[in-house]
Deep mutational scan, measured.
Amino acid sequence: TYVQALFDFDPQEDGELGFRRGDFIHVMDNSDPNWWKGACHGQTGMFPRNYVTPVN
């Protein structure tokens, strides 16, 4: 499953995934309602669910 970033996200903690608005992120785990795990630009980490939108 892929999502697209609605906003820039700069990691604040180790293990978070940084990205820029418009980036596509491969979702690896969406079991938590607020923080998902994904991959983008060769990196993996957690990111806030409300920063992304589903891609059809």
Score class of each variant (00 low, 15 high):
M46K: 14
M28R: 08
V55S: 08
G38M: 01
L6M: 14
W35M: 14
V52A: 06
G38E: 00
N30Y: 12
Q12F: 10
F9Q: 06
N30V: 10
W35E: 06
A39S: 15
L6K: 15
Y51K: 14
D23T: 05
G18Y: 10
S31C: 07
G38I: 01
F19I: 05
P48Y: 03
D8C: 04
G45M: 00
A39C: 11
H41S: 08
C40Q: 03
W35S: 07
N50Y: 08
R49W: 04
T44M: 09
F24A: 06
M46Y: 13
T44W: 04
N56G: 14
A39M: 13
A5C: 04
D29P: 02
F47S: 03
H41Y: 08
M28S: 10
R49A: 14
H41G: 11
G22E: 04
P54L: 15
N34G: 12
G15H: 12
D8W: 01
Q43G: 08
P54C: 10
F47I: 06
P48M: 06
F24K: 14
F47R: 02
G15Q: 07
M28F: 09
V55R: 08
P48W: 04
D23K: 00
F7W: 09
D29G: 05
M46Q: 08
P11R: 05
Y51Q: 05
T44S: 08
T53A: 15
Q4V: 06
F7T: 15
H41R: 11
V27M: 04
R20I: 07
Q4L: 09
T53F: 09
D8E: 04
D32I: 03
N30Q: 15
V55D: 07
D14S: 13
P11Q: 04
Q12G: 06
V3W: 12
D8R: 03
F9P: 03
S31G: 09
G45C: 02
W36M: 09
P48Q: 04
L17H: 00
K37C: 07
H41P: 02
D10T: 14
G18E: 14
N56V: 14
D8F: 01
D8N: 12
H26P: 01
P11I: 04
F7N: 07
V3C: 15
R21A: 13
R49V: 10
Q43C: 14
P48T: 02
M28Y: 07
I25W: 01
D10Y: 11
P11T: 15
G38T: 00
I25R: 00
W36I: 11
R20W: 06
W35K: 09
H41F: 08
L17S: 01
A39N: 10
W36N: 00
Q12R: 15
G22D: 05
D32P: 05
N56I: 08
K37D: 02
K37H: 11
D10V: 10
P11N: 05
H41K: 10
G45T: 01
C40N: 05
R21L: 06
T1W: 06
V52N: 02
Y51H: 13
N30H: 09
G22C: 03
D10I: 10
V27I: 10
G38H: 02
Q12Y: 09
H41T: 04
H41E: 10
F24Y: 10
N34C: 08
V3Y: 14
Y51T: 05
M46W: 11
G45D: 02
S31I: 04
F7H: 15
R49P: 12
T1N: 08
L17K: 00
S31A: 13
D29Y: 04
P48D: 05
Q43P: 00
I25Q: 00
Q43I: 14
L6W: 03
M28E: 10
P33R: 09
V3F: 15
F9W: 09
N50T: 14
Y2A: 04
K37M: 12
A39V: 14
L6H: 05
H26D: 12
E13R: 14
C40A: 14
P11V: 04
R49M: 09
Q4K: 14
K37L: 11
R21E: 15
I25N: 01
G42F: 03
D14M: 10
A39E: 15
Q43N: 12
E13Q: 12
P33V: 13
F47G: 02
F7V: 15
D10A: 11
Q43A: 08
C40L: 12
M28L: 14
V3S: 05
G42D: 09
P33C: 12
V27C: 05
A5H: 00
V52E: 02
V27A: 02
R20C: 11
G38Q: 00
V55G: 11
L17M: 08
V3A: 05
G18T: 11
G15S: 12
N34M: 13
D32T: 06
L17G: 02
Y2I: 15
S31W: 04
H26L: 13
T44V: 14
R49E: 05
Y2E: 08
F24R: 12
P48E: 03
G42N: 11
P33M: 14
V52P: 01
W35Y: 15
Y51F: 10
T53E: 14
N34F: 11
W36L: 11
M28K: 04
Q4W: 06
V27Y: 00
A39P: 00
N56C: 11
P48C: 04
R21I: 09
Q4M: 08
Q4E: 12
R20Q: 13
D29K: 04
P48F: 02
T53D: 08
R49L: 05
D14A: 12
I25C: 01
G18Q: 12
E13F: 10
E16S: 09
D8L: 03
N30A: 13
M28C: 09
K37P: 00
P11H: 06
N50M: 09
C40E: 01
F19G: 02
F19C: 03
N34I: 12
S31E: 10
T44P: 05
D32H: 07
Y2S: 07
A39T: 15
Y2V: 07
F47A: 02
Q12L: 09
Q43R: 14
N30R: 13
G22L: 04
R21G: 07
A39Y: 11
W35A: 04
P48R: 10
